[in-house]
């Protein structure tokens, strides 16, 4: 993680990602995505089942219990950025080392 503070490029990249997931995400289109729209139009959306973890704290990019939509989406995005960064660094660094 230290390299992300030392290296300007990595730091800038993470800050952009935090901005996108933590702030810009609130302004994302809420229309169904391509697959969902096709499923709806062609009549197979009803075959979709709720994910087993649809009741999880972060389900559908919101934090359960936070009513402020902007805060809820932004915080879920921020948590996503941190978890993704930690997990991917663990994986990629261990792969780079094992040679």
């Amino acid at each position: 993680m230290k390299e992300f503070l030392k290296n300007k490029f990595l730091l800038a990249g993470i800050l952009v990602s935090i901005f996108v997931a933590g702030f810009l995400s609130f302004y994302a289109s809420s229309s169904p995505d391509g697959l969902e729209k096709v499923a709806e139009d062609k009549g197979f959306l009803d075959t979709a089942q709720e994910s087993a973890n649809s009741g999880s704290v972060l389900a559908d990019y919101g934090v359960a219990g936070i009513d402020n939509e902007r805060l809820s989406v932004g915080l879920s995005g921020l948590i996503g950025v941190v978890v993704t960064l930690v997990l991917s660094l663990v994986i990629f660094k261990s792969l780079a080392r094992k040679k």
């Binding site: 995400s25 229309s31 995505d33 996503g80």
Partner: peptide
């Protein structure tokens, strides 16, 4: 060792960018 952090960053950026649904046609986003 040089590219592993970049792979991490790319992953984070893609996660973040996937949160941004953009409108493509009436009532559809991507």
């Amino acid at each position: 060792d040089k590219t592993a952090p970049l792979a991490g960053l790319a992953t984070v950026f893609i996660f973040a960018a996937q949160m941004i649904n953009f409108p493509v046609a009436a009532g559809t986003s991507g």
